[in-house]
Each structure stands twice: as structure tokens, then as C-alpha cells.
């Protein structure tokens, strides 16, 4: 997995709450059997009109935000469907971090598996960032090692926390399955002492 230590990049503000994964990537693009190539479909119905032309009023169609690498969003980002195609699309588009006051659980988990860092900041801090981003294009540094978000001009700095095990995995870019298999003896012991209900072959 791609590691994440710190990242400095342009912020794209998307001031909406409850952005669901159906909006992040609509269902008609879930039929691929690869993990790659989803960026072109990110926010498809918001980015493109009925004839497939980019909608000029959507933030990711406006330079320089089309090259943004940090997404700033409202509360409960990523709610709805469990589709990991959502973080795949965000990462493939070029995003490395998402800042929001809260995330839906499954989406939050999925991000960590893809080197995409979801950062939870207090509501007031997020409002302040929206304000700064509205005034002029905003560049932020998201530092997972120090667990801070800051700008280069000293106008904004806020700490955040991430579960320590997840932080370590992401800092080192560890393979989750490889890490779990270090506990294979415990898994085997569990299987030997518990009644598991096998299914017949159909």
C-alpha cells in the first residue's frame, strides 16, 4: 500500500454535507474489475452535463482546482454504499487527503486501505478552512507524523488524531493482510476451539 507521511497540496472546497458514495462514483461505473481508472468518473453527475460536457460551475472543473490534492468537505462525507470504488476514484483523480468534520464509517475504513488519509477536524476549524479557501486558493500541509494540518503562512494550524495502529500502517505503507498473518497461530487456535458452521458445496 502507498505510504502517507505528510503531504502539501492545493485544497478543493466542496461545501456540502452528507456527500454519498453514489455521488462520488455513480453505479454505472462499478462494473470494472480493476482497481484503477476510476478517476475519470469521480463526481460524474456533478462534473458533467447530460451531453458529457464539463459543468463549468463545478469546483473540480475550475483551474487550478482540477489539480487539487486535498478535498475539503462537509459532515458525514462518504455515506451510503460501501463501494471502495469511491476512494479508488478520489485517489485516482489525485487526492491524497480529505478533510471533513466527520465521515461515514465504511468509507473512512476504505480510505486507509488506499493511502488516502481522511482527516477529522472540528466543525469550526473546517468552517475556517472553507473561509480561507474561498478568499484565495489555499495550500495546506497534512502531516500524519505530527498529526497536524497547517498552512504555510501561519494562519491555520490544527491537530488531529488517528487510531495509532492505523497511523503506523499508513506511515509505513504496510500490507494489512501480511500484518494480520503474523497472528496466524491465534487464528488457527480460534478455529480449533470454536464451532464454525461450514457450508456444503452447492
Amino acid at each position: 500500500m502507498k505510504e502517507f507521511v505528510r503531504h502539501t497540496g492545493l485544497v478543493a472546497p466542496l461545501n456540502r454535507s452528507n456527500v454519498d458514495t453514489d455521488q462520488i462514483i455513480p453505479k454505472q461505473f462499478l462494473k470494472r474489475i480493476e482497481r484503477t481508472g476510476f478517476g475519470q468518473f469521480l463526481f460524474f453527475d456533478w462534473r458533467f452535463d447530460d451531453d458529457g460536457r464539463p459543468r463549468p460551475d463545478f469546483i473540480l472543473n475550475q483551474p487550478p482546482y482540477n489539480t487539487a490534492t486535498i478535498l475539503l468537505a462537509g459532515a458525514n462525507f462518504g455515506c451510503g454504499s460501501s463501494r471502495e470504488h469511491a476512494p479508488w476514484a478520489l485517489a485516482d483523480f489525485g487526492f491524497r487527503a480529505i478533510i471533513a468534520p466527520s465521515f461515514a464509517d465504511i468509507f473512512y475504513n476504505n480510505c486507509f486501505e488506499n493511502g488516502l488519509l481522511p482527516v477529522i477536524l472540528p466543525e469550526e476549524a473546517v468552517s475556517q478552512l472553507f473561509q480561507l479557501a474561498e478568499e484565495a486558493p489555499l495550500t495546506l500541509t497534512v502531516d500524519l507524523e505530527a498529526q497536524t494540518v497547517r498552512d504555510a503562512h501561519g494562519r491555520f494550524s490544527s491537530p488531529f488524531t488517528v487510531n495509532p495502529e492505523r497511523r503506523q500502517k499508513l506511515l509505513k505503507g504496510l500490507d494489512s493482510i501480511g500484518e494480520t498473518l503474523l497472528h496466524e497461530d491465534a487464528i488457527r487456535a480460534y478455529e480449533e476451539t470454536h464451532q464454525l458452521i461450514s457450508l456444503p458445496s452447492l
Partner: peptide, 29 residues
Amino acid sequence: SHTSTHGAFGAWAFGIGTSEVEHVLATQT
């Protein structure tokens, strides 16, 4: 995400992403 349906039976049932699907396939945990 609608795996929560099975909770009706007194099971702990929840939706996961594809990386977690791979993790469960490989480790059953």
C-alpha cells in the same frame, strides 16, 4: 452496506469495502 439486514437474527453483520473483502478471504478475520 445493507449487510446490516442479517442483524435481525441477533448476528453482528456489517458492510465492508473491497480491501476488507480481500482481507477476510485471506485471513477470515
